[in-house]
């Protein structure tokens, strides 16, 4: 083996990726080539150097404790008793939020509080349950299993191929007192959440109606965040993004109930 050949394989050997035969041949070469040996040793040293660990046992104990606590409360939330109280919480929460919105609009206080109030139910409780879509772009089969996972009467056809929105997460949430499918999209770095659920009983104050030739929707802007919703049949779709410049109406064709 020449020096050139040996150096070509050297990283594979250091990364433990070379075949046994290659390893053997590189080592044989190193045995009688001082120059290559010092290169090899240097690379090995550099790798070990970067890998120097600085463990902080106190920190990881703390983190571990926190995670276990979260797991325990996560577990509890799957018990029926807790689910009821969750639902109650959601109703109470939306009532409280409606009240806060009224008070705040009445006093016409700073816009960003309203922004916070609106964002809260969407962002803080998002994805209470999530489908097993660990890969970035779910396949058709994964999507089908996600649909099963949603488990209610709502069946959705999601058309992601024609619109350029990438579906990254699928789950369901209890918001505004009802069960909603939650779909998270990314479009050119802009994150968009779609909540799809039964329109009945959902009240969203402060939305301005917008009438387009083909359909009617309602819009609300607060701070950097914008939301629109539209109703087709008995299904309401709420689209939320934190990017004010994004055209949410491009989401119209993405989801339709079937």
């Amino acid at each position: 083996m020449t020096c050139e050949e040996a150096l070509e394989k050297i990283y594979d050997v250091i990364d433990n990726e070379a075949s046994e035969i290659d390893c053997q041949r590189v080592r044989e070469h190193l045995d009688h080539c001082r120059d290559c040996t010092s290169r090899y040793e240097f690379e090995e040293k550099l790798r070990a150097f970067i890998n120097r660990r600085s463990p902080d046992p106190e920190r990881s104990d703390r983190l571990k404790k926190k995670i276990l606590e979260c797991i325990d409360c996560d577990d509890d939330s799957s018990l029926p008793r807790r689910r009821c109280s969750f639902r109650f919480c959601a109703v109470a929460l939306s009532a409280a939020i409606a009240l806060i919105i009224c008070i705040i609009s009445a006093f016409a206080v700073a816009k960003f509080y309203r922004h916070k109030v609106y964002i809260y139910p969407f962002e803080r409780q998002h994805m209470q349950r999530e489908a097993n879509l660990l890969s970035g772009n779910p396949s058709f089969e994964e999507w089908i299993s996600a649909r099963d996972f949603l488990g209610n009467d709502l069946q959705l056809a999601v058309d992601v191929n024609t619109t350029g929105h990438e579906l990254v997460r699928v789950g369901s949430d209890e918001i505004l007192g009802g069960e909603f499918a939650h779909l998270r999209f990314i479009d050119n770095g802009v994150h968009i959440s779609l909540f799809v659920g039964a329109a009945e009983g959902v009240k969203l104050p402060d939305f301005e109606p917008v009438v387009l030739s083909e359909m009617e929707y309602y819009k609300h802007v607060c701070g950097q965040c914008q939301m629109i919703y539209w109703i087709s049949g008995n299904v309401i779709t709420i689209a939320v993004t934190e990017n004010k410049g994004f055209d949410l109406t491009t989401l119209f064709p993405v989801v339709r109930p079937i």
Binding site: L63, K66, I67, C70, I71, D74, E130
Partner: peptide, 8 residues
């Protein structure tokens, strides 16, 4: 990030 990972 780690916490979210373990919860998931």
């Amino acid at each position: 990030l780690v916490q979210e990972t373990f919860l998931k």
